[in-house]
Design a binder for these strands. Structure first.
Lengths: 343, 343
DNA sequence: CTGAAAGCGCTTACAG
DNA sequence: CTGAAAGCGCTTACAG
């Protein structure tokens, strides 16, 4: 009663050996059905649970996955990117569905996170969810690779082919967003978001954007891309900068919803009507998107599917099965920020 | 190189016994400083990490906390209450700061979650973060108590004094929200949110609301409380219901930001101006609040502090130290949804 | 200050 | 189908 029951307690009560108890609890067909049921009944009665530390030590795997949120240290705590929060939800679910536990951690707190988890047998593998400058991770990824740690990384495909990345098809997302705008009769575009290799996901969205413009025979000028990171204020600044440049435009494609929302604020401040004068498309479909004013047309990433694929891929990697990078298709969510075609 | 280094490998290289290695790695003053440093250097070189399963098994504690998000099953996945997501962030940080790991799980997935964690030695204690019907947890809490599991629960103070609860001072929050509205000259109020014991947090906010009204000598009628759960659509419905009742009102206090946002949508649909005709205060200060139109005046809960106190309290409980329920003060965040006093 | 030894609670060949 | 035994990698009395 007082201290926890062990398999030996059960063995004693069931009148069998501890080995048989262990087998019965794992439902081994080696054990006589009747004996098995008897043992399981006693275990239940005693509220017995297999000690994870002991079984993990013995089997040398932890049945645990680690999720590392590598956030941009400049970000405010309370402003954790809502998209990643939603990913966290789906990853939690997918992990549990596979019978694994999930250890969650933020990068900044552990300076040597890259060495911590798998080496100490706390987790069998790691999922990296990064937002912030991609280039900063390079070294750590190398380190993980060198240690033969099992890991998958969310985002754009990596240069190093040994790094398994899972991400949404950002290029396709950028393309359909832009095509939507073109279909609505818009002709003068600007892209708001960093498009350098520091933000490979944004860069791919931009490339999809350019591709759509090109296919529509619209002209492309580099000046129409204004860098921004994924915050409301950065989006606001970027739009102000665009406005100050004096370029005329009737459509904005923002690399994230947060950027779009900031941009809309800047436009409104100048008395520019959205969508009448300028149509805006965002990216991510974060919860705020539908409450924005006007409600934001955006590109939705399937976080449910993404979480599942991330977890499945990592598990395959751990089991030594073949895996390959995957691109998850995105979809357009039409709301009001682009208006309709009758302009 | 191939397989993980153990303390025996280090002992071999350092020419000492394995026990000495173990002591040195825990930085025991029993070990000669020179020997200690030598051992630590070798450990570093070998990229050695203490095997958590082995040390946890030996010491019989896991240095891990479990966080259980008990969500309302009726909620959509992608609409995880943003407030809880923010709590998750602060709990993750606080846990790491204490040198513990954090296991995260959603309730629905594990039917016997209440028995799982501590019994299997996966975690030393549990933090319960619930949103949804409080009464549903009663049995499970009893069960946890019966098993002498260490746990803290977020929210209103519990009937059962053995349950350690940590929460924001909802009564005070409801009071200052209402006082703000009264100070602005509003006189006809309605409260949007369930105020039954199924939602003790909302109930406390409502009670603070009533207290403020009473102190201001305003009359209170039960009809002016409309039940709603914390979703945008529920807030919308509640406001429609209020509108349909024909009661006149110039101020709404919503039990959550999501409810407030839904209510504002309903008001606007009827051509009622916010804040000119009706002032609205929300609760939580979720990220969306500042992007709402108009930006929402709301009650901010200090999630940073809340996470720290939750973790600290649980750790004290585990260590057998004295703990008591705590009420964390809230603060008013003034934005535009209440207008100014010049009405 | 250091080492030999026991033991945490399991799982799993091995033998029957 | 079952049991005796080894061993996963640590920590920590105990003895010196």
């Amino acid at each position: 009663m007082s201290s926890k029951a062990t398999s030996i307690d059960i063995a004693y009560r069931a009148g069998v050996s501890q080995s048989t108890v262990s087998r019965a609890l794992r439902n081994s067909p080696l054990v006589n059905l009747e004996t098995r049921q008897k043992i399981q009944a006693i275990a239940k009665e005693l509220n017995y649970k297999v000690d994870k530390n002991a079984s993990n030590l013995r089997t040398q795997n932890s049945h645990t996955l680690a999720l590392l949120l590598c956030e941009d240290p400049t970000n405010d705590d309370s402003l954790i990117n809502p998209f990643f929060l939603s990913m966290l939800g789906s990853i939690t679910r997918a992990t549990a569905q596979q019978g694994y536990d999930l250890l969650v951690s933020f990068q900044q707190l552990s300076s040597d996170w890259h060495a911590d988890y798998e080496d100490s047998n706390k987790a069998d593998g790691i999922i990296l969810l990064g937002y912030g400058d991609y280039m900063d991770y390079e070294q750590k990824l190398e380190h993980l690779l060198a240690q033969q740690t099992h890991f998958v990384i969310w985002g754009a495909e990596h240069n190093n082919k040994s790094v398994l990345s899972i991400g949404c098809d950002n290029r396709q997302g950028g393309k359909i967003a832009t095509e939507h705008l073109i279909g609505l009769g818009r002709r003068e575009f600007a892209f708001l978001g960093d498009a350098s290799s520091h933000s490979p996901e944004f860069r791919d969205r931009y490339q999809g954007h350019l591709q759509a413009l090109e296919q529509a025979g619209l002209n492309i000028t580099a000046a129409r891309q204004i860098a921004a990171i994924s915050t409301e204020s950065s989006g606001y600044e970027a739009a102000r900068q665009l406005l100050a440049s004096g370029l005329s435009f009737d459509a904005l494609f923002a690399a994230s919803d947060l950027i779009a929302i900031g941009a809309i604020r800047a436009l409104k401040e100048q008395g520019i009507a959205v969508p009448e004068q300028v149509a805006v498309v965002g990216y991510d479909d974060i919860p705020v998107a539908s409450f924005a004013n006007p409600p934001l047309t955006t590109i939705k990433q399937n976080t449910q599917l993404a979480g599942e694929i991330l977890v499945d891929s990592l598990l395959k990697l751990i089991r030594g099965q073949a895996v390959s990078p995957q691109l998850i298709p995105t979809s357009l969510v039409v709301r009001s920020s682009c208006g309709s075609a009758n302009l």
